[in-house]
Design a protein around this nucleic acid. Sequence first.
DNA 1: CAGAATCCCCACGGATACTG
DNA 2: CAGTATCCGTGGGGATTCTG
Lengths: 119, 119
Amino acid sequence: MGKAYDVMAATCPSRTVLHRIGARWTVFVVTALEERPMRFVELKTRIQGITPKVLTETLRALETDGLVKRIDRSGKLPHVEYELTDLGRSLGVPLQAVREWAESHVPEITEAQERAARS
Amino acid sequence: MGKAYDVMAATCPSRTVLHRIGARWTVFVVTALEERPMRFVELKTRIQGITPKVLTETLRALETDGLVKRIDRSGKLPHVEYELTDLGRSLGVPLQAVREWAESHVPEITEAQERAARS
DNA sequence: CAGAATCCCCACGGATACTG
DNA sequence: CAGTATCCGTGGGGATTCTG
């Protein structure tokens, strides 16, 4: 009874999953929605620098993968909320660790880069 | 004393770091080297599907960022080893979590994708 | 063995403008 | 508000071949 999936194998479907996770804006959207469910514009505001097109694409992809749920509460006015599914919330855990690692090791990496640039 | 770095900020350097982590093959190389230091060809064998060019580029980037150390043990014959630095090993922790998440949630995601395809 | 050199390409993402 | 619609570029990555 070995591992069912192994990212080291060229054709393992887990690679596709990893690819999705690694997509440019996935970590941002998941992180934002971990805080609380949000509307489109809230997400756009919270995630500085993201464009509406890319936000839409990212949300659609996450929806397709079952990580985000789109809830249409429109009455007369459009009103859409996005929230993490249980699966999405479970992804939030490892992603948060990565994010925190990034935020807390900026100086080391910057220094290493400068050292490399000088030599 | 707020957070020093915040990935949600458009110009925060942590975004660059995150971008590097998210690079296509970073997780594979770090994962492989977590096992033990390896030579070029060993890495190429272990990480199925990676081409020498891309492996080289990934290793150079990780070197530049201070995550991997290149050790030239060449005598008459070329002999180069790559090993994680302490910084690289520390990154290995959150990356392993992501990798394990990917490997262990393939079915849920595949099902979600099929459901989405049908509707 | 450990790469370097080329060539190539398209998919990811960015900018901008527009709409129900 | 919640997106679409276009257009566009680019660089990350792939395939292949060659070399000290």
